[in-house]
């Protein structure tokens, strides 16, 4: 996956902090996440995510962030918004 594609995902996992505990995977109400073969959470089904934020709050290792729920016509503005976030 290119970094551009990663940026578009609803959820981001910081691999260095993820301990692969499976909590986000097990409790996500829509089964968006999976554990990769090397034991890190991955966003396996991004289209299923409802941006509820549960994984972010439950992760004991502060290793997940969920992007704000995009508004209907936001698709085209997402990139510039992310660029802003990156600077902070």
């Amino acid at each position: 996956m290119t970094s551009q594609q990663v940026k578009k995902l609803p959820v981001r996992v910081y691999e260095e902090w993820c301990k692969g505990c499976n909590i986000c995977v097990a409790f996500c109400p829509t089964q968006t996440l999976e554990l990769s073969s090397h034991g890190k959470a991955i966003v396996a089904h991004p289209d299923k995510c409802t941006y509820c934020g549960l994984c972010e709050r439950l992760c004991p290792d502060l290793a997940i962030t969920v992007r704000p729920r995009p508004t209907k016509n936001e698709a085209s503005t997402v990139d510039s918004k992310e660029a802003d976030d990156g600077k902070k």
């Binding site: 301990k19 505990c21 934020g53 972010e56 992760c59 004991p60 290792d61 502060l62 290793a63 962030t65």
Partner: peptide, 25 residues
């Protein structure tokens, strides 16, 4: 984001990941 708020209160990101076991509450 909730995670960013939380991380902004960490003393040093270098101390992370924590000593706690995987899945510890």
């Amino acid at each position: 984001s909730d995670q960013a708020v939380t991380v902004s209160y960490l003393r040093s990101k270098k101390k992370y990941p924590s000593v706690w076991c995987p899945g510890c509450s």
